[in-house]
Design a protein around this nucleic acid. Structure first.
Lengths: 291, 291
DNA sequence: CGGACCCATAAGCCACACTTGGGTCATGGA
DNA sequence: TCCATGACCCAAGTGTGGCTTATGGGTCCG
């Protein structure tokens, strides 16, 4: 049973005649007649009795009309719901992001979205880049706010990568000292951050000619700076971590050899066409400063 | 939003990929791709995210899928209901018929229908021919069992007329007497039946050269025969009324001058294609004796 | 790096579906 | 009675939507 013909039948029942239904549909009368005849042929029952003064429904027609009304109601409701999503009156966007982004960039963007479009619900999950990317790939999240060192993050798979900002990585040193570059820290005690940061740090040190001795490990940039301030070691931190929190006693040194951290979002292809996702993306771009 | 495309989308969501949906539909992959693209264009939102390993639904897709499932369920239920009607497992037929038909012909036919198709409910209303025809014309009944004298009943309008039987009208006389034809009854007291029977009787008498004196009026053929048996008058009755009930003391005389009564059914054009109506029609034809 | 699996796009072609035109039937007014 | 109106159906012409074939891009896996 062709549902389009069902709706034509419904219009006939509503209008009370084939001609009137045709007018309502913007068609000619034979078009309606043919549709109705085809529908009746397909169900094997007359649905409408044609009289000179108009039409009346058979029992089968009355039964079918109730179903047709239900179908039309579903279609109408579907259009309403989709319009709400399209106009950002409703919707959901799930963002997985790494900890230091959650501290600064993300709250601003989410706040802006909540203000401009209160119907959108934002789901926020703190996750390291590999887990965030996996969640997006599995459909458990819409956006992954992730980073890579001097390159796109690994494990993107078929996801689309959109860089947001590139920031330098700085040396973080105790207040007292005369060190001014990486290669002077071959013998220092090092504090490692998250796994990926650690790997990058080790890579940079090897490039500089030594193997760093990792004494402590924490991915909390506040803890790290406290450790450094007490003279328990040295470390490297990306600029945004130092913007989010800067211990007053640590010494920060620009060191090009530590490279850059690239921060951006990843999403499934086409997901940036989903209004709620696109809206949050726009806000993130705005927060980091323009297009 | 084209509901056929909605069902294509539903199949995509169910199958998990465009290619699999195409297989299920017996189409090629581009056909599904085009339908889905058209649907997404019409709603202005992506519904399905295409990945190399298959597809996943967007939020809009999930919303729409629920509606599509509801639509599909309605369509399926409609087909079930219509199949019940087509196979006479369910249905309704409303018959309006004149009194003496209700006494004999109709009970047999209804009984036969109830036995062979217990799911069919028959609604029976006793009504004089003009009212019965009006009810059918107004859609308040499916069949009108009516009669006319020597012709189709008047007031058929656009209804279809199907004669069932033709029966002679006989003279009904008191047991004692020597009368043997109509023209000998110019001076008799007459008993009139229903309005239409009375009109026919008067016409026949005038044809025979006199104006009948109508002393009594009743449309009950049992009452009529009792009046005649007591010698209170004479009358004319169609054969079936005498078959239904025959007072042992009245004398029945064949009188060609009284003409014939034609009994048949009327229905709206096309109504004989409605299974329940057609079934009762068949039973009526069977009861009166064949095709 | 080639093969297998997704998908999208372009071009071709058929058939469906809508239009046009003509005809029947019943109703209503002059 | 005659015509006008409005209902429907039927038949034939035509345009376009929609399916197919063919091709190419992309990811994942061996």
């Amino acid at each position: 049973m062709d549902p389009r013909r069902l709706l034509v039948f419904r219009e006939v029942a509503r209008a009370g005649s084939l001609t009137a239904a045709a007018r309502a549909l913007g068609w000619t009368q034979p078009a309606v007649s043919q549709h109705l005849a085809a529908l009746e042929r397909s169900v094997g029952l007359p649905l409408v009795l044609r009289g000179p003064t108009g039409t009346s429904l058979t029992e089968a027609g009355e039964v079918l009309l109730r179903r047709a009304d239900a179908v039309a109601a579903e279609l109408h409701a579907a259009e309403e719901e989709l319009a709400s999503l399209a106009q950002l009156r409703a919707g959901r966007v799930r963002l997985h992001c790494f900890p230091s982004a959650a501290a600064t960039l993300v709250p601003e963007a989410v706040r802006a979205l909540a203000t401009s479009h209160p119907g959108i619900s934002v789901g926020l999950v703190e996750a390291e880049p590999p887990e965030a990317l996996a969640a997006v790939g599995a459909g458990d999240a819409d956006l992954a706010l992730v980073f890579g060192y001097d390159a796109e993050p690994v494990g993107l798979g078929s996801l689309v990568w959109r860089p947001l900002l590139t920031e330098p990585v700085h040396l973080v040193l105790p207040p007292a000292g005369t060190v001014s570059s990486l290669d002077e820290l071959a013998g220092a005690d090092w504090i490692g951050g998250c796994e990926r940061c650690r790997v990058h740090l080790v890579d940079c040190c090897r490039e500089a000619g030594f193997e760093p001795a990792l004494r402590h490990e924490t991915d909390d940039y506040v803890v790290v700076q406290n450790l450094v301030a007490r003279g328990l070691g040295v470390t490297a931190l990306p600029e945004s971590a130092l913007t989010a929190y800067r211990h007053p006693e640590v010494r920060v040194l620009e060191e090009p050899a530590l490279g850059h951290r690239v921060v951006g979002v990843a999403h499934r292809p086409g997901a940036d066409q989903v209004p709620a996702t696109a809206a949050l993306l726009r806000e993130l771009v705005t927060v980091v400063g323009g297009g």
